[in-house]
Computed example of a mutant assay.
Amino acid sequence: MKLYTCILLIYFYDGVISTSPEFDALLARLAVTEARQDMSEKTIESLKSKLSAAEQQIQKLQIQGSQRSKSEKNFPRNVSDHRRSILPGVAIGFTACVSVPDVKSLGVHHTIVYDRIITNTAGAYHNSTGIFTAPYKGLYVFSSTAMSVAGHTQYLDIVKDGATVNTFLADGLGNQGFEATGNQWVLELDQGSEIWIRTSHAGEIHGNCFTLFSGFLLSETE
């Protein structure tokens, strides 16, 4: 509602009614003011409309964020653990080999030292002792390839914390050349558990990196 108060000065000249110049100027200013007010009201209505649309969009995004948060909470922990375990700087894995040509005069329960490191991403394998130490509790995969000297056999054990898990054989008996065998194990380890390969009985093995030991973390466990 617009309310204008003004003083009207009217002149009579030769029978013609005439307003003062001041009144004409006032009317012109009032017209400009009214036009500006109308434009401001339209701008305010436009801003209100945009604000309402923005509030609706924010509410929609909040609902989507809440649904995503619930989905992440229900995501299987073992999958997220496995994903975390393969990130750079956290992945656990190694491969090492026996670099010397032959390891002879091995005694019973002699630890095989795989001295040449090919991969050792977290430093969990120790090439001075031949022992892998688990940095996390989890499910690990280990494999070993052993090559026997021609005409000889060699029984080997994979050992977990001092106890034999499995025995395998590199059998070159009766052969004129070298004989290799490969084996793989999936083992659940506690943090700090130790794994290594040792002889089951006295003998010798061929090196030159044909005898290898590998392992990696498959997934962390609680």
Rank of each mutant, 00 (worst) to 15 (best):
T5G: 13
I7P: 04
F12A: 12
Y13P: 04
D14H: 14
I17N: 13
D24T: 14
L26T: 02
L27W: 03
L27P: 06
A28Y: 06
A28G: 08
R29G: 11
L30W: 03
A31Q: 11
A31L: 12
A31N: 14
T33G: 07
A35I: 03
D38T: 09
E41C: 09
K42E: 14
T43W: 06
E45P: 04
S52C: 07
S52V: 06
E55D: 15
E55S: 15
I58L: 15
Q59I: 07
L61A: 11
Q62T: 10
Q62H: 06
S69V: 09
D81K: 09
H82L: 14
I86W: 05
I86G: 08
L87P: 03
G89V: 05
G89L: 10
A96H: 02
D102I: 15
V103K: 09
K104R: 14
I112N: 00
I112K: 00
Y114V: 05
T119C: 09
T119G: 05
N120T: 02
A124P: 02
N127P: 11
T129G: 04
V141T: 12
A146S: 10
M147W: 04
S148K: 00
D157H: 11
V159T: 06
F168H: 01
A170D: 01
A170H: 00
G174E: 10
F178N: 11
T181R: 10
Q184H: 07
W185Q: 01
V186P: 02
V186M: 12
L187Y: 00
E188K: 13
L189I: 03
Q191K: 15
I195D: 02
W196F: 12
W196L: 10
I197E: 01
T199V: 06
S200Y: 15
H201P: 05
E204A: 15
H206D: 06
G207T: 00
F210M: 10
T211P: 09
L212R: 12
L218M: 09
